[in-house]
Amino acid sequence: MPENISIRIDGEYVPAQDGQTILEVARAGNKYIPTLCWLAGISSVGACRLCIVEVSGVGRLLPACTTPVQDGMSVTTNSEKLTQYRRIAIEFLFSERNHRCAVCVSNNHCELQSMAQRLGVTSVRYPYAYPKLAVDLSHPRFVLDHNRCILCTRCVRVCTEVEGAHVWDVSSRGIRSMIVCDMNRPWAQSSSCTNCGKCVQVCPTGALAEKGFAVDEMVKQDRNVSRLTARRGGHS
């Protein structure tokens, strides 16, 4: 049995267990921390930095989804400073790729778009990069549009950890990072893809979508994946 400990979140004592992350404890205590790359049921990687929190005594901001709790820890989930940094994280995501919500399959059902709204982002202060990026239309049922990818790696993790196929990976580093299929080939030529569609359903943006949907129409079913893993007793 993991040891019961106690931490403070926004001044309130909440029960926790050794080995849990700050995010798990906060969620169990109905405390909201914004997340984007995190998804119930798959591992946490700390890619998007939306879930940053302040921990007293620690000089830097820590991602709640990957930071384990410690007895006596005192966590702040919301402050001017945190909102400012979360907005910056969102604005970087917008400036790095080509997002045009008005003509996107995921318009009004997109986690990046709704997070921007929730955090009060009404413009992007950084110059847009306008990279020239490919759209992989080769798969008979699905599309991968790099223009809308935020490199959250949910697709990589769900395909590896839940479907067991490990089709996706991230190639290169930094601003050149790119989601790649198998050893960087068109999706239709993947020898490992089972066409299960899990990656599409968990993708928080319009980067992975089903064919045949117009603007506004792509509604994702990521809960089904989380439910499946819960039944298998995976990450919660």
Partner: peptide, 19 residues
């Protein structure tokens, strides 16, 4: 005041920017 996505983000007119 920047009114609308084209003024705020570049939006559809900016789709030409990668070329």
């Amino acid at each position: 005041v920047a009114l609308g996505d084209c003024a705020v983000t570049g939006n559809v007119p900016a789709m030409r920017n990668s070329h």
